[in-house]
Amino acid sequence: MTAVDDLDRKPAEAVRIAVSRADDAAVALAEIRQQLATARPSFVLLFLPSRLQPDELANALRKSLPNTVVFGCTTAGQITSRGYEDSALLAIAFERRHFRVASTLFKPISPVSIADVVSQTERLVSQFRATPGRKRLALIFADGLSKQEDILVAALEAGLKDIPVFGGSAGDGLRFERTQVLHNGEFHSNAALLLLLETDLTFSGLGFDHFQPTEERMVVTRAVPEERLVLEINGSPAAQEYARLVKVPVAELSPAIFAENPVLVRNRNLYHVRAIQQIQGEHGLTFLSAIDDGLLLTLGRGKEIIRTLDTGLAVSDKDGKAPDFILGFDCYLRKLEIERKGLDGEASEHFRQRRVVGFSTYGEQHLGVHVNQTFVGVAFFRPEGGAPL
């Protein structure tokens, strides 16, 4: 039986963490249940490794945690109290004395109905009555293969108005076959899960990457926007032109090459990553964010990834205190780059020190924008005044 995985050094107090690495869904959930035996959660977030079958886990969930509200999604990896993992079933129990939650499921999301998303979101907000003195935020978990997150998150921002939203796109290891979200005991593809949280904890949103623009420019000259597919760059076959710019043979293009050589899109004075997922067909490139004809792209060059990770996670409240925990959504391409450079142990140590838990995503949502190759998170602090939890 797996021992309880307390967060390194000083454990978080507003959440309880449980982890199982068992191969059987029923056994894994039994271990989760035992580790959470003394927790009193408002809800539990469950992040699945690709080796576990969602349907089997859903069946076992009804028996193992019958009276617990559970949400979650499939992942491209987990961030546990050990740091980066690939095969862990991770449960985060949000204590009810600090959190309230309401939820809604958008299905189908391909194609997205902006009007429906806005009205459904506004209805959720109006029905979830505010408690004086508490703060609100939203979490979004979307089918990571839906290719609809850009529109979805923009519509959510309109419906949520001044409520900040953060989240990640569900993953499927590196298979890119089927991604799902968990709501009301069932897993759903072509869907997105919205959680509206209320808490007495102060919190701060995080969002950072480690890329800077180079002088290499390119223009999308032929695309299939609804498929996030680029067929031509600079008038040449997309994969061939990209390979020329990053100075590798087309045959050597891989997720690791894409991770270390992303393309950037400029929005005013900020650059956002438009990550490449894979080669499509003979010369096409599939992206993880919106793409269109005429879009100007800039090749990105990475800064030192561990240093930017350490800087980005070094947040504190107004009294200079570290977070109780950080809920993190980290692009799987960041993990690939870190592993390729042999830095996964060092990155995991930073996650442990900063009490980060979460998962590796197929895309991240940060304050109304869908991004890639970015760490997005929410740092939760103890209630104002530093009163014990």
Rank of each mutant, 00 (worst) to 15 (best):
K318I: 12
D86H: 14
A238L: 07
A14H: 10
F381M: 11
L296M: 10
A142F: 00
G168P: 01
L297M: 12
C331M: 08
A3E: 14
D143E: 04
Q278H: 13
F380R: 04
M1A: 14
A314C: 07
M1F: 12
G281S: 10
L29P: 02
G72S: 05
H210K: 09
I17H: 00
S348L: 02
T74A: 07
G72A: 07
K247F: 00
R354W: 05
S236E: 15
R301T: 13
L206R: 08
P164R: 02
I17L: 14
L174V: 08
D292R: 13
T121I: 08
L139H: 03
F71I: 09
A191K: 02
G159C: 10
A239Q: 10
F329A: 06
A12N: 05
A142D: 06
P49M: 02
L309S: 11
M218T: 04
S64L: 03
N190Y: 01
V118R: 08
S64F: 01
R129A: 14
L389R: 02
V101I: 13
H283W: 13
V44D: 00
V219P: 05
Q127N: 11
T80E: 03
F47R: 02
L65F: 06
D317Y: 09
F94W: 07
E304V: 06
R82W: 06
L245W: 01
T75K: 01
G171T: 06
I163M: 06
R134Q: 14
I276G: 03
K63I: 08
P213R: 08
F325P: 00
R97S: 13
I276S: 06
P255V: 07
D6H: 14
V230A: 08
P262G: 08
S126V: 03
I114P: 00
P225A: 10
